[in-house]
């Protein structure tokens, strides 16, 4: 092996954080975490509103995607951004199913070079699933309905992936 590997220099980390914090002896971190969870829960109402707004945005974005050309490009960009935001936020407010559906849709967009009718159909199914969760307020894993929604989407993607095989 040649000797052209770069030299490695180590730099000490003085860790100033340790000097700024103090251990609360006898305190339970679970109490701090519960307090932080409470602070986030207060935002639940705002999330519900945003979720409904996001459904409207997704509905109009997918209509743009169906038009093709430049409008499709713009539509996909909105679609991806809204789905990405939803997958990142919904789970925090008791909608893990929304995060899962959003994640599945984002990955599908990321792995699709072109969006033809088949790809658009797959995305429409994801948006329909999100609409169902929004309208019926399906929180948690959604029980049997949630399982049915997710397994339906998985089957659609498996079928899509098997097309070229």
């Amino acid at each position: 092996m040649s000797d052209d590997k770069p030299k490695v220099e180590f730099v000490d980390n003085p860790n100033p954080l340790k000097d700024k914090v103090k251990i609360k002896h006898g305190a339970d971190p679970k109490e701090m975490i519960a307090k932080a969870d409470e602070a986030v829960k207060k935002l639940g109402g705002e999330f519900e509103k945003l979720f409904t707004d996001n459904i409207r945005q997704l509905t109009s974005a997918i209509a743009e995607v169906k038009l093709g050309g430049e409008r499709q490009k713009a539509g996909v960009s909105v679609l991806r951004r809204v789905l990405h935001d939803l997958r990142g936020q919904a789970g925090t407010f008791g909608y893990p199913l929304v995060s899962q559906v959003g994640d599945s849709a984002c990955k599908f967009i990321d792995l699709s070079d072109d969006l033809g009718n088949t790809e658009i159909d797959v995305l429409v199914m994801h948006i329909d699933a999100l609409k169902a969760v929004n309208q019926s307020k399906i929180t948690g894993d959604g029980g049997p309905i949630g399982q049915e929604l997710m397994s339906g989407l998985r089957k659609v993607i498996q079928k899509y992936n098997a097309r070229g095989a």
Binding site: V11, K18, I33, A36, Q89
Partner: peptide, 21 residues
Amino acid sequence: KPVSAAALYARIVSIIENPRR
């Protein structure tokens, strides 16, 4: 994401207790 308070607190504690060079 989705972020939870427990997970973010754990990351901060890791930075405090296990600083890496």
